[in-house]
C-alpha cells in the first residue's frame, strides 16, 4: 500500500494485541530478546518474529527499534505548522515529505492544516529545513519548539 497510512482500525487477534502491548515496554537487551519475550508471553520465539514482521509489513506497526532523543546528542526536534490552501494540499505535502528532516506529518482540521515534526542532527538544521520548505512552497512555516516536556508514559493499549 501507499505510504499514506491506515485511516481506520484493522482486525488484530488477541495474540497480536498482547504482542503489541508487550513491545511498548522494555525490549530485552540480551542476545536472545525474542526468546526472552516468548517466555514471558507463552509464545514461540519464531512466532513472535513472524508476527512482528507481518505487523510491520501491514503497517499496523510503523517501526520497531530504538526511539532516539536526538537532543541528547546535540540534535533537535521541532513541531511546525503551515496553512496550506486546499487546492495545493497534495503538492505541498509532497514537497514537505520530500525532506529527510521531516519525521512525521499529519493533516489536521484547522486553518493551520499541516503539522509536521522536524528532526535534525544539529540545532541549526531546524531553521534551515523550515527555510527550505518556505522556499519550495512559498508558504510560511510556523515553528513550535518545545520549551518544556511534561513526562508521560507513552502507551496505547491495542
Amino acid at each position: 500500500m501507499s505510504p499514506v497510512e491506515h485511516q481506520q482500525a484493522v482486525v488484530l487477534d488477541p495474540t497480536d494485541r498482547r504482542l503489541i502491548n508487550a513491545l511498548q515496554g522494555d525490549f530485552p537487551l540480551t542476545r536472545a530478546p525474542f526468546a526472552d519475550l516468548a517466555n514471558a508471553l507463552g509464545l514461540d520465539e519464531s512466532e513472535i518474529i513472524e508476527r512482528l514482521q507481518r505487523l510491520l509489513d501491514t503497517r499496523v506497526l510503523t517501526r520497531f527499534g530504538p526511539m532516539f532523543q536526538i537532543e541528547r546528542v546535540g540534535g533537535a526536534f521541532c513541531l511546525a505548522a503551515m496553512e496550506v490552501p486546499e487546492e495545493r494540499f497534495d503538492e505541498v505535502a509532497g514537497a514537505v515529505n520530500a525532506l529527510a528532516e521531516v519525521a512525521h506529518n499529519y493533516r489536521r482540521e484547522h486553518a493551520l492544516n499541516m503539522w509536521f515534526v522536524l528532526a535534525t542532527e544539529h540545532p541549526d538544521g531546524i531553521a534551515a529545513a523550515a527555510g527550505a520548505i518556505e522556499q519550495a512552497t512559498g508558504l510560511a512555516v510556523l515553528l513550535f519548539p518545545k520549551e518544556c516536556e511534561y513526562f508521560v508514559e507513552m502507551k496505547l493499549e491495542a
Binding site: 503489541i20 522494555d26 510503523t62 520497531f64 527499534g65 530504538p66 526511539m67 532523543q69 507513552m154
Partner: peptide, 9 residues
Amino acid sequence: IRRIGAVPN
C-alpha cells in the same frame, strides 16, 4: 534512546 520497542499506527 528513550525506549526500545514498537511504534503502533
